[in-house]
Simulated assay, not measured.
Amino acid sequence: MNAVTEPLVSIIVPIYNVEKYLDQCVASLIQQTHHNIEILLIDDGSPDNAPAICDAWQHKDERVHVLHKTNSGVSASRNAGLHAAKGEYVCFVDGDDWIEPDFVEYMLELQAKRNADIVASLCCFTSTDFHQRTQDEVSTINPQEAMELFFYPTIELGAWNKLYRRSFLTANNLEFITDFCAGEGLQFITLAASKANCVTVGQKKVYHYRTDNATSATTKPDVERQGIGAITTMQYICEHLDLSNPKVRKAYNWRLWSTYGYCLRQIIATHQEHVYRDLLRTCIHHRRSLALPMIAADISMKRKIIAVLTFISPTVVAKLSLR
């Protein structure tokens, strides 16, 4: 397949305070084996040197396009990328992550198997996991199965490590909700999955998810943005997503239970138990009341044991997980 017949793929990169990692990220995009790509670098009013780095890459490669905007958050940045995208397919890469040279090629291969609206890899490299899987396993699942998959801990949360048919996103008015402080990726991918014709998933690792960025919003404890923000998103999902399928509801309940645990850890990690006394009680209540039903969830035995221990003492389990 030559560059003329290759489908155009838009790679959207929201950028804020990632000057340390940005060159590695963009270099990995430039080096894709699938050449017919457009790289949309969305500078979200970054106060560091990232805007200048973006401009430098735009001068180096005509496939790179930079959009400078006032700071409005990662969701608004991704939406700006979606509005500017011209590709038949779109994908998202965070500015502090990077991808393997065959990321786009692999995703397109998955898409071609069943003409899926969404494709994803179940696995990714992390800052502590550098090992490739010995063999790839590919399957195509229906919308309900995909929603289960995204709620359960089977796959890393987020809009990244996936490929979407752009016409599918446009036809269903699928964008990121800009009011969310946390969990915006989960809301997007579960809603998208519910509307997809099908979702094809593989297991080959082609995405590098950085877990050691100390400046990342997801690595710094923040009760308001991360803890309360995640709970707010889960409540929104419950109100706006069809959870009538029992298996989907069970998966959602696991994610909700997990989110209350996440918020509890945020409170403890920031030593603000006295500040968020009512929220602390709420988190403990939900962690305990929902713990035993988690034994029936589609999770590992280790997680089921943690659920039993959480029923006994949610606070102790939360403190142990922070060590």
Rank of each mutant, 00 (worst) to 15 (best):
Y209T: 02
P246S: 10
A120H: 06
W257T: 01
S28P: 08
E137M: 11
A171E: 13
A269P: 09
G202W: 00
I228E: 14
N142A: 12
A120E: 10
V275P: 04
Y260C: 01
S258V: 05
Y106T: 13
I53Q: 11
S167D: 15
W57P: 00
A171P: 00
E137S: 10
V223K: 00
T310W: 04
C123W: 07
H240R: 11
P153R: 06
P293M: 12
D129K: 03
I295R: 13
H83N: 09
L322K: 12
T70F: 00
C91R: 03
Y164G: 00
I177E: 12
M294G: 03
T170D: 13
F168L: 06
Q266V: 06
V26C: 04
G261M: 07
Q31V: 07
N213M: 09
A291V: 06
T215Y: 14
Y276A: 01
T232C: 14
D242H: 08
I30E: 06
T200Y: 03
S127Y: 10
V275S: 09
M1G: 13
G202I: 00
H131F: 09
K20L: 13
Q32N: 09
R210G: 03
E137L: 13
T70E: 14
P143S: 05
V4Y: 14
Q266G: 02
D48M: 11
V18D: 08
K250E: 07
E88C: 11
L108R: 00
A307Q: 01
N253E: 15
E38G: 09
M147C: 11
A76K: 06
A297K: 00
C124W: 06
K205Q: 12
W257K: 08
L22D: 07
T211N: 08
V26I: 15
D242A: 03
T154V: 14
Q266A: 05
C123N: 15
S10A: 13
S244I: 06
R225N: 15
P143R: 01
V93M: 02
K250A: 08
E109K: 14
H65R: 09
T126H: 07
M294R: 08
P14S: 05
G95I: 02
F176E: 06
T282Q: 15
S289G: 05
V316S: 10
P7G: 10
E239H: 13
L82G: 00
L322W: 04
A76P: 00
C263E: 03
L292F: 14
K113Q: 13
P14L: 08
T315A: 08
T219H: 13
